[in-house]
Computed example of a mutant assay.
Amino acid sequence: MPETVLVTGGTGYIGGWCVAELLRRGHTVRTTVRAPGREQAVLDAVSTVTDPGGRLEFAVADLTADAGWDEAVRGVDRVLHVASPLGTTDSGDLVTPARDGTLRVLRAATAAGVRRVVLTSAANTASPSSYASEGVTDETLWTDPDDPTLIPYRRAKTLAERAAWDFMARYDGPTELTTVLPGAVFGPVLTASTEGSVGIVARMLTGAMRGVPRIGLEIVDVRDLVDLHLRAMTEPAAADQRFLGTGEFLWMADMARVLRDGLGDLGHRVPTRQLPDFVVRLAARFGDPTLREILPALGRRNRHSTEKAHRLLDWQPRPAEEAVLDCARSLIDKGLVQQPS
C-alpha cells in the first residue's frame, strides 16, 4: 500500500533515485534539504524520470543540527536515511558528524513511532581489517574501528552504523532498523554531478585519468541499490538485519575496457594503461596526496557475499558492465563529458 516515506538527502545521488523510485511506485515522499532554496533542484532532477504528481514534500533539516528533525518525521510511516554529513566538516573529524547525524534521525524516528528506518551504511563496514585478505565475507563481519590502518571514511561509516545498532538495542518500542551496505555505486545520474563513484567514470571519459590503478570495485547499479532499499523497507524478514548491496567485482582496468568497447568513439579518451603499484605510491607521496587513501586498496581482492539479500529479499542486481556503461552514457547525455569533435 502507498505510504509516506522520508528520504534524507534528496539532493544526493542515491537519495535522489530513492525519491524518484518511491514516487514511481505510488508513495508520498518527503525529503530533507540542508537549507531552503534547494527544493527546486530535487524536483527538477526527479522529474526527469517520473512525474511527482503533487506527492513530493520537503523539510529543511541538517544532520549536524537538531532543528527540523521532529517536523521532518511527523506523519511519516518509514524512513530511508541515505544522507551522510561526511565531508561537510572543516575539523577533519568525520566520525562525530556521521555518528551524531545518524542518532538524530533515529531519535526523531523512534519518538514519532516510525515503522522502520533503513540506514544506508557501506560495504566497507563489513570488511576484514587486513587488506591482504582475498576471502569472501558477509554481514556477520564488522570492520574493526580501532585498526590504525583504516582510512577515516571507513572508520566513520563503521562507527556510525555501530552507534545505530547500539541505540536500537537500548530502545524499547515499535520502530525497526535495517541497514544496507552498498559497494561502489554507478549507473545513470539525475543531476549534473560527478560525486562519489560516478567521478571515476567521469575522469576516465575526460582523459583526466592517465592510467588506472590496480584497484577492484564491487559495482552495484544505483537503481538496483534503491530497489534493495525499498525491499528492505517493507519486507517483514528484513527487520533488524544488515544487507550487503554489492555487485560484480571489476578491476578498474576491466572498467576501462568496458567503456572503450561499449562507447566506441565516445570512449576514446579512456585510459588503457594500468599503472604499476609503485607509480601510484610515488604519486601519492610526492604528487597527489588525495591518492593516499586508495593505497591500502591496491591489489585487494576481498569480496562480499550478497546471498542474504538474494535469499530474504529476492534481490537480483544487473551486470556491472551495464551499470558502468549506463553511467557513462548518462554523463555524456547531460553534457558532463565533452564528446569528441
Rank of each mutant, 00 (worst) to 15 (best):
residue 60 V to N: 11
residue 4 T to D: 00
residue 183 G to P: 04
residue 185 V to A: 06
residue 310 H to I: 15
residue 217 L to Q: 13
residue 200 I to T: 15
residue 96 T to F: 03
residue 266 L to H: 05
residue 105 V to Y: 00
residue 143 T to M: 06
residue 14 I to H: 05
residue 92 G to A: 01
residue 106 L to P: 04
residue 281 R to L: 07
residue 247 G to R: 11
residue 338 Q to H: 06
residue 230 L to M: 07
residue 325 L to M: 09
residue 285 R to I: 12
residue 217 L to T: 11
residue 86 L to Q: 00
residue 125 T to C: 04
residue 293 E to M: 15
residue 265 D to W: 08
residue 90 D to W: 05
residue 117 V to D: 11
residue 144 D to L: 15
residue 6 L to V: 10
residue 163 A to Y: 02
residue 183 G to F: 01
residue 215 I to L: 09
residue 160 A to L: 13
residue 162 R to D: 12
residue 84 S to I: 08
residue 66 D to P: 00
residue 97 P to Q: 07
residue 161 E to Q: 12
residue 235 E to R: 15
residue 159 L to M: 14
residue 198 V to I: 12
residue 147 D to Q: 09
residue 40 Q to A: 09
residue 233 M to R: 12
residue 181 L to H: 15
residue 305 S to P: 01
residue 38 R to F: 03
residue 322 E to P: 09
residue 139 E to R: 10
residue 45 A to Q: 08
residue 53 G to K: 01
residue 42 V to Y: 05
residue 151 I to H: 10
residue 237 A to Y: 09
residue 81 H to L: 03
residue 298 L to K: 03
residue 313 L to S: 08
residue 311 R to C: 07
residue 236 P to H: 15
residue 154 R to L: 14
residue 17 W to Y: 04
residue 61 A to W: 02
residue 136 V to I: 15
residue 259 L to V: 05
residue 212 V to D: 06
residue 314 D to E: 14
residue 331 L to W: 14
residue 144 D to A: 07
residue 230 L to H: 03
residue 279 V to G: 02
residue 233 M to H: 14
residue 301 R to E: 13
residue 212 V to Q: 14
residue 126 A to D: 06
residue 137 T to E: 15
residue 241 Q to D: 08
residue 150 L to N: 04
residue 293 E to F: 14
residue 295 L to A: 00
residue 259 L to G: 02
residue 72 A to L: 02
residue 48 T to L: 12
residue 215 I to P: 12
residue 23 L to T: 10
residue 11 T to H: 03
residue 99 R to P: 04
residue 49 V to I: 06
residue 129 S to K: 06
residue 330 S to C: 01
residue 339 Q to Y: 10
residue 283 A to Q: 12
residue 297 A to C: 07
residue 257 R to D: 12
residue 325 L to P: 13
residue 7 V to H: 07
residue 276 P to H: 01
residue 93 D to V: 09
residue 16 G to C: 10
residue 205 L to Q: 10
residue 220 V to L: 01
residue 239 A to D: 05
residue 51 D to R: 13
residue 78 R to V: 06
residue 184 A to F: 11
residue 61 A to T: 09
residue 317 P to M: 10
residue 112 A to E: 13
residue 239 A to C: 12
residue 2 P to L: 00
residue 333 D to P: 10
residue 314 D to L: 06
residue 325 L to C: 04
residue 122 A to R: 02
residue 25 R to F: 10
residue 180 V to R: 13
residue 303 R to H: 02
residue 22 L to Q: 06
residue 204 M to E: 04
residue 119 L to R: 07
residue 182 P to W: 04
residue 29 V to A: 07
residue 323 A to I: 02
residue 110 T to Y: 10
residue 65 A to S: 07
residue 6 L to Y: 06
residue 265 D to M: 05
residue 333 D to W: 11
residue 213 P to T: 11
residue 314 D to G: 15
residue 303 R to G: 02
residue 146 D to T: 09
residue 219 I to P: 08
